[in-house]
Simulated scan of single mutants.
Amino acid sequence: MAAANYLTSEDQFLCSICLDVFTDPVSTSCGHNFCKTCITEHWDRKHKIHELVPLKEEYEGRSAGKTQAETQQMIQKKRLKIEEIKQSVDLSKEEADREVAEGVQVFTALKESAERGQANLINTIKEKQKTIENQAEDFIKELEQEISELEKRSSEVEQQSFSSGRFYFEVQVKGKTEWDLGVARESINRKEEIPLSPEEGYWSIWLRDGNEYRASDDPPVLLSLKSQPQKVGVFVDYEEGLVSFYDVDAAALIYSFTGCSFNGKLYPYFSPCDNDGGKNSATLIISPVRVN
């Protein structure tokens, strides 16, 4: 619709004598426009002005008018606009034709595919589902194997005892809200519930309520940590009487017991604590002990 409006407006710039777009336009004293050549020739032939203008107004005297530079500029702009609109219409038509052609191709391809392979589509879906199930089964087997190995390692660590030298092990505590870990004497009291302290044969640290860390010294020491450890390293130097705990990822010391008197075999000590309604269900993962 916009293109039609622009095209009809071109009539305003047609000479009423030659019926073409103005060439070297001039204006008469009454305000009408003509080609300079057209109006001059008609004046020379002594035509009456009211025969040339649409309103058939009468004028006295002869006037060759004056050149309208602004009118020429407007005419040129209108011509350019007309060409622009024509080009825009052509481009729109080409785009529409192309989209129609592409749409027909897609529709045809889909129709042919549907007619040719409905049973193939079902088989493809079933094959993909089977592949997913097989991958899941393989992944579960890998996890079960890893769990078995971790349980074996944990058992080995728990059964390992030391009575000299240095040893070190790591415990992953990621996802836990409560835990205890450290080392304990072989001679600890296992029949009664006793406080964890060096006097009772425990050198350990523990977590409660997700963010409260303490060392089981006498009295217990509240620990202020910059970040929550995801893996804790435990180092023991038997002869030096030293037990140190480290944040493995941050390579930072958490706490050290010094001047310890071990008097007998030491065993790694762990407690995952209560499940707490699933909030503390993560597993303590223990790495093998390394002995120096």
Score class of each variant (00 low, 15 high):
Met1Lys: 09
Ala2Trp: 07
Ala2Asp: 13
Tyr6Asn: 14
Thr8Val: 15
Ser9Leu: 06
Cys15His: 02
Cys15Leu: 06
Ser16Tyr: 06
Ser16Cys: 08
Cys18Asn: 05
Cys18His: 11
Leu19Val: 00
Asp20Ala: 12
Thr28Trp: 03
His32Ile: 02
Asn33Phe: 15
Thr37Met: 03
Trp43Ser: 07
His47Asn: 12
Ile49Ala: 10
His50Lys: 08
Glu60Tyr: 03
Gly61Trp: 04
Gly61Phe: 05
Gly61Glu: 08
Gly65Trp: 11
Thr67Leu: 11
Gln68Thr: 03
Gln73Thr: 05
Gln76Ile: 02
Lys77Phe: 03
Lys78Met: 12
Arg79Tyr: 00
Lys81Gly: 09
Ile82Gln: 03
Ile82Leu: 15
Glu83His: 05
Glu84Thr: 10
Glu84Met: 04
Gln87His: 04
Gln87Trp: 01
Asp90Phe: 02
Asp90Ile: 01
Ser92Ala: 15
Gly103Met: 12
Val104Arg: 14
Val106Ile: 11
Thr108Pro: 00
Glu112Asn: 13
Ser113Ala: 15
Gly117Glu: 14
Gly117Arg: 10
Asn120Ser: 13
Leu121Ser: 12
Ile122Phe: 11
Thr124Asn: 07
Gln129Gly: 12
Ile132Glu: 14
Gln135Lys: 13
Gln135Asp: 08
Glu137Gln: 14
Ile140Val: 14
Glu144His: 10
Glu151His: 11
Glu156Ile: 10
Glu158Ala: 11
Glu158Cys: 07
Gln160Glu: 11
Ser163Pro: 00
Val173Leu: 05
Val173Tyr: 08
Leu181Tyr: 02
Leu181Cys: 10
Val183Lys: 07
Ser187Ile: 06
Ile188Cys: 10
Glu192Met: 09
Ile194Cys: 04
Ile194Met: 09
Pro195Asp: 14
Ser197Cys: 15
Asn211Pro: 00
Glu212Ser: 06
Tyr213Asp: 02
Asp218Ser: 13
Leu225Ala: 08
Leu225Gly: 06
Leu225Arg: 02
Ser227Tyr: 02
Asp237His: 10
Glu239Gln: 13
Tyr246Ser: 09
Asp249His: 11
Asp249Val: 09
Ala250Asn: 09
Ala251Tyr: 06
Ala251Trp: 01
Cys260Arg: 02
Phe262Arg: 01
Phe262Gln: 01
Cys273Gly: 01
Asn275Met: 03
Asp276Phe: 05
Gly278Phe: 07
Leu284His: 02
Pro288Ile: 03
Val289Glu: 04
